[in-house]
Write a protein that binds this DNA or RNA. Structure first.
Length: 573
DNA sequence: GCCGTTTTCGGCCCGACTGTTTTCAGTCG
């Protein structure tokens, strides 16, 4: 659930953190940063917590003590935080945009403001291009050039990259590094290894006996646009696709420690180090130490083991609650990347897909699937040439014909039926009853109140013919936000009516989000992971839907298309 | 400003690389 107040306070505290850092205040910045993160990942509305239990209840939130709790109260009561206003008056500077420039940090922002009165990105660019930064004490020609390039990069790149779209390039680079003479092994780390929806950079770790050779190769690959750093154990470059990549070369003894450390996420590591410290150890990227003695480091497993913890898959390392003793002792057996037997959302050239039913079936079989469901659009989605009842019936006949030509895979009859503004469907119930799988989705009239949109989808769920809600929130990463809808309510009704919720695997959809998946699973809701394929190459995207499910703590049993065909069909209405 | 099964006071992650101020501060992850 997204709570506006939590978000607003989180942003404000993060900004206070940077402002204090600029001022050179010690330790408080981390405290505010911690509070900001905690509020942002909180499952409850902070306004509600305050209503119920006042300041005392706020102090129960991790990272929030008396001081910050009072500031939250001040904001709830007066709509402002005086401390924040005071700091902004002292430094009327657009901190976030300046900090986004590679190499520009708090201390430099302060210097730029004091010496040249620079407040924003435009002014920074002007002064840099006028060659006026090089005269500031502690800065030089190289710093000035780096800033100019950094601003250019910012202008053309912008947001984070969708993992599923960038992954082929990443895998190609990893393979090249693995192939260098002297490289024993190489792995992804960071957000790529955690299989996040989007990634801000690419981290690779390698073991090699000839580190400098690996580094020389890495910084001179044709994919590289610029080199930030080129050292014996660490190098950093900007790739032509518009994202930074870091490579570290390590020894075998500390590879597990480094993999753990650079996989993160940050908050998972902070918590892990706390646990290590309490047990009298020190944990860093080279290993787990007792004094100066190395206790563990070769594998991740032995590090978690020495900390009395179960190893856990990177996908669930968020620092939120996976290290809580209860959770860690009872980690779910997450769905595996080869657990899917079927795919229940596929478009063909009957509407906006690029390939025929037969081509899609053959491609699915090549991808190891046992069954697929053809779910072309329905009539109200005119731009796709959506089918009406008659055409849908014709397609059913066609599928039966094609089934004989592809005996190795079961082709189910389905549709992606439009949910109209009032929650009705644009295909007759009589026709829907003849389909194997009925998926429904919102494709227009996005702009409704949360209450109306929730009611609209609930009405569709209550239809006994409706099996699956496709891409339940409608968001497209980096393009458009989700429509307003109360997902908690949808999950309740899904449980009550036996409606399956989809995890759409298309890389920039990944809809539902992990937090909702986890909530749904706790409530006993079933999910399907579907590619939403529009051509024969899209089946590879199922991987990212599985990653999404794993980040939502889903097991094989929670996902209906991990079941054999007959059992899967029984799980539908 | 937060936190505590060593602490209600005294800690708070730390190592690599770069540029510049030639011995180290700033930035990044």
């Amino acid at each position: 659930m997204i709570y506006k107040l939590n978000e607003k306070l989180s942003r404000t505290f993060r900004e206070i953190s940077v402002l204090l850092e600029i001022k050179g205040v010690a330790f408080k910045p981390q405290a505010y940063e911690h509070a900001a993160y905690s509020l942002n990942s909180l499952d409850e509305d902070v306004a509600e917590i305050y209503d119920k239990g006042g300041i005392k209840a706020l102090e129960e939130i991790p990272g929030i003590g008396q001081g910050i709790a009072e500031k939250i109260e001040e904001y709830i009561k007066t709509g402002k935080i005086r401390e924040y206003i005071k700091l902004k008056k002292e430094f009327p500077v657009d901190i976030e945009s300046l900090r986004a420039v590679e190499g520009v940090g708090p201390k430099m922002i302060l210097k730029l403001y004091r010496k040249l009165g620079i407040k924003n990105l435009n002014q920074l660019e002007k002064f840099a291009k006028a060659r006026r930064l090089r005269n500031i004490e502690g800065m030089g020609v190289k710093t000035e050039e780096k800033i100019i390039h950094g601003i250019e990069f910012l202008k053309k790149s912008g947001s984070r990259m969708v993992l599923g779209f960038a992954m082929p390039v990443f895998r190609n680079i990893l393979d090249k590094i693995k192939g260098i003479d002297g490289v024993k092994t190489a792995e992804f780390a960071g957000s790529v290894r955690r299989m996040q929806e989007t990634v801000g950079d690419l981290d690779i770790l390698a073991i090699s006996t000839k580190p400098s050779k690996v580094m020389d190769f890495f910084v001179s690959m044709p994919e590289v646009e610029a080199v930030h750093a080129h050292g014996p154990t660490k190098s950093s470059v900007r790739l032509k696709i518009g994202i930074d990549a870091d490579l570290r070369v390590l020894s075998l003894e500390s590879f597990g420690a480094a993999l753990q450390y650079f996989t993160g996420d940050k908050y998972h590591n902070v918590r892990l180090r706390e646990i290590a410290t309490k047990l009298g150890y020190k944990l860093n990227e080279y290993g787990l130490y007792k004094g100066s003695r190395l206790i563990a480091g070769r594998t991740e497993e032995e590090i978690y083991d020495k900390l009395n913890l179960n190893w856990m898959p990177p996908e669930i390392r968020t620092g939120k609650d996976e290290l809580d003793p209860d959770n860690n002792k009872n980690l779910p057996d997450l769905i595996k990347y080869d657990d899917l037997r079927g795919d229940l959302q596929i478009q063909t050239d009957w509407t906006d897909g690029k390939n025929t039913i037969k081509e899609m079936a053959e491609a699915a079989q090549k991808n190891g699937l046992e069954y697929i469901c053809i779910t072309d659009h329905t009539k109200s989605l005119a731009m796709t040439g959506g089918s009406d009842d008659k055409r849908l019936i014709r397609q059913m006949v066609e599928i039966e014909k094609i089934q004989k030509q592809v005996p190795g895979i079961k082709v189910l009859k389905g549709a992606e039926v439009n949910i109209m503004k009032d929650g009705s469907l644009d295909i007759d119930d009589k026709t829907l009853a003849q389909l194997d799988v009925v998926g429904v989705a919102v494709h227009f009239n996005f702009n409704m109140s949360e209450e109306d949109m929730t009611g609209r989808i609930i009405r569709a769920m209550e239809n006994p013919n409706v099996d699956i809600i496709f891409h339940p929130t409608g968001r497209i990463i980096n393009k458009r936000p989700a429509y307003k809808v109360n997902v908690g309510e949808l999950l309740k009704v899904a449980k009550k009516t036996g409606t399956v919720m989809e995890i759409d695997a298309f890389p920039d959809r990944l809809d539902l989000k992990d937090e909702y998946i986890r909530k749904g699973i706790e409530m006993g809701v079933k999910f399907s992971i579907d590619s939403d394929a529009h051509n024969i190459n899209h089946f590879q995207y199922l991987e990212f839907g599985i990653a999404q499910a794993r980040r939502g703590w889903a097991t094989k049993a929670d996902v209906i298309n991990t079941y054999p065909l007959e059992e899967m069909l029984k799980l539908l209405k």
